[in-house]
Design a protein around this nucleic acid. Structure first.
Length: 323
DNA sequence: TGCCCATGGTAAT
DNA sequence: TTACCCTGGGCAG
């Protein structure tokens, strides 16, 4: 369930484990017949813009994926169990994960002479479990598309969009997206120019992917609180200084998200507080999903309202919202 | 077990 | 503005 940071991490997984390899595409669920169009071709590039993922194949066409609310990728890599535990953990280290310990029982397959391969699953937070099942593993759940190489597999479940698109169509799709801080060097100026053309409240503008790509409902609420900004203020009434600060805050939060895999939006934490926040989602945010709970700054109960068809959380006192 | 909810977006009305 | 898609986790009963 990603906002922009997750999709950049997914693109990174494909860059590390799939780019340069011939990929076998299939649709275990049977709902993606176009998998055959890319089956047997090499992946040459992966990249993300906002919440959109593009996997470019040597045919010139791309797989375009948008996860929506429910979508998820499940990655697994094949590792020779003859490798030591530290070697296995080292491989995962490349993904930013926490490493893995290979238990002695994992060697059991060796007793029957089977290839000593194991499976390293990389989940939402790159947490890793080591399983002794054969590679590739059986698909779990409703897998729309499976991308398989000799050493890695990626399963996609529940996406809003999963389609094969031409290079020209990729250009069209990108043209419809606002700036992404990790893609656009001139993103701040593009953000300002697009915000100033909209008459909607800033709480809506931040969710508009044509204005800024990658922000979702969590980051929206948190960015607005961090700026102590009233979500109902007209976006084009805000000063350049305020808008630039919003952009810079988003850039920083996105980088933290890509690095940690989690939307950690409370800063100024001690090391132990940070560990607690990473372990417990309830300690991770200023206002998101904290309706009726006391504001962490002023103790006013956090309010929830519907904006842009989504729940918007804010502190009426800190953010100056008059009831 | 079944219902509700969710970090999104599009098509229909 | 509303309906709908899609999947899995959490929780009440």
């Amino acid at each position: 369930m990603p906002e922009g940071h997750s999709v950049h991490r997914i693109a990174g997984q494909f860059a590390r484990h799939f780019v340069g390899n011939v990929c076998h595409l299939s649709s275990p669920q049977g709902r993606f017949g176009d998998a055959v169009l890319l089956d047997g071709h090499a992946l040459v590039r992966s990249f993300a813009v906002g919440k959109h993922l593009f996997l470019v194949f040597d045919t010139g066409d791309s797989l375009h994926v948008h996860l929506g609310i429910y979508g998820a990728w499940d990655f697994a890599v094949s590792v020779q169990l003859d490798d030591t535990a530290s070697t296995a953990a080292g491989r995962i280290g490349q993904t930013g994960g926490r490493g893995a310990v290979v238990g002695a029982h994992e060697d059991s397959l060796a007793s029957i002479g089977a290839p000593r391969r194991t499976r390293l699953r990389m989940g939402e937070h790159d947490s890793v479990s080591v399983e002794s099942s054969a590679f590739p593993p059986e698909p779990i759940g409703q897998v729309r598309v499976r991308i398989l190489t000799n050493d890695a597999v990626a399963d996609l479940r529940g996406p809003t969009v999963c389609e094969v698109v031409s290079a020209e169509r990729v250009v069209e799709l990108l043209a419809g997206l606002g700036p992404d801080p990790l893609v656009d060097r001139n993103g701040e100026e593009r953000f300002l120019s697009r915000v100033k053309r909209t008459g909607t409240p800033i709480g809506r503008a931040l969710m508009n992917q044509k204005i800024v790509a990658g922000i979702g409902n969590v980051y929206r609420a948190e960015i607005l609180f961090r700026a102590r900004l009233n979500p109902y203020l007209g976006a084009n009434t805000l000063s350049d200084e305020t808008l630039r600060a919003l952009w810079k805050d988003w850039v920083g939060l996105l980088k933290i998200g890509v690095k940690t895999g989690q939307m950690l939006t409370i800063d100024g934490l001690t090391a132990s507080q940070k560990r607690a926040a990473l372990a417990n989602r309830d300690d991770r945010h200023w206002v998101y999903r904290r309706a009726s709970e006391p504001c962490r700054i002023c103790a006013t109960p956090i309010v929830v309202d519907i904006m842009e068809s989504r729940k918007l959380y804010f502190c009426p006192t800190c953010q100056g919202v008059i009831a």
